[in-house]
Amino acid sequence: MSQHQNPRRAFIAAAGASVAGLGFTAIAPGLHLMAVGEANAAPRPAGQAASPAIRWGLLIDANKCAPGCTKCIDACHEENGVSEQMPDPRQNSQWIRKIELVDRRNGKLTTLPMMCQHCAKPPCVDVCPTGASMKRADGIVLVDRHTCIGCRYCMMACPYKARSFVHAPLTEQTPGTPRGKGCVESCTLCVHRVDKGQQPACVEKCPEGAMTFGDLNDPESVISKRIASANTTQVRGELKLDLGVRYQGI
């Protein structure tokens, strides 16, 4: 885990990558202007529920994902206050992780970020005894920690190992992302940002512009157009879970 690296060095690297990165412009240190993907939308008005007309999704271009880069992970962990380090790293929360793939036929290396795939038919929601594991009207899969009893059945059921169990008491939560001991958690697609009209932190901070966020139901959205024109994959597609996260280049 690298979120404890020197913040100064992290920042300089980020700024450097932004200048050099595709489609990014550093107009002021620490502030990135997105040139790819969709511009930030208007926030959903107060009092209005998430709409079933929308299906939020991500398109991840593995060809652009740089090996060794963990900016998306850092951004996620910073945004959501995932900073704790357990003595056994296997007990750490992994909302998003980088996977290195080596093709057995030709030895080609591909890397990609893996997180909750926000299935339309999520196994975690099916198996949850209390209904704490849930899918919002706009397709975002969440854990209601008010009713999660920590049985971990959803972790057994998730085909992507996207869920983590909080193994120890926490004190460093951010006000926007409540999380705590004894409950299961996973990528929320930065639901608190999305509701404000912003993009998920990982998408915003990817220096390569490898991630696109948008409405899969809207044929005019950037993400829909890309999926229509490029060859995209759903991981473990044979399970027919209809994923909200799609990949290019695998």
């Binding site: 920042f11 620490g30 910073e78 206050g81 705590g180």
Partner: peptide, 25 residues
């Protein structure tokens, strides 16, 4: 407060440091 942050306008150490760096390069 098993899950919610009990402090007002709280920023975790890592996040606070990053914001600080952003303001004063």
């Amino acid at each position: 407060f098993e899950c919610h942050q009990p402090k007002s306008k709280f920023k975790p150490a890592a996040q606070a440091a990053a914001t600080e760096m952003g303001r004063k390069p």
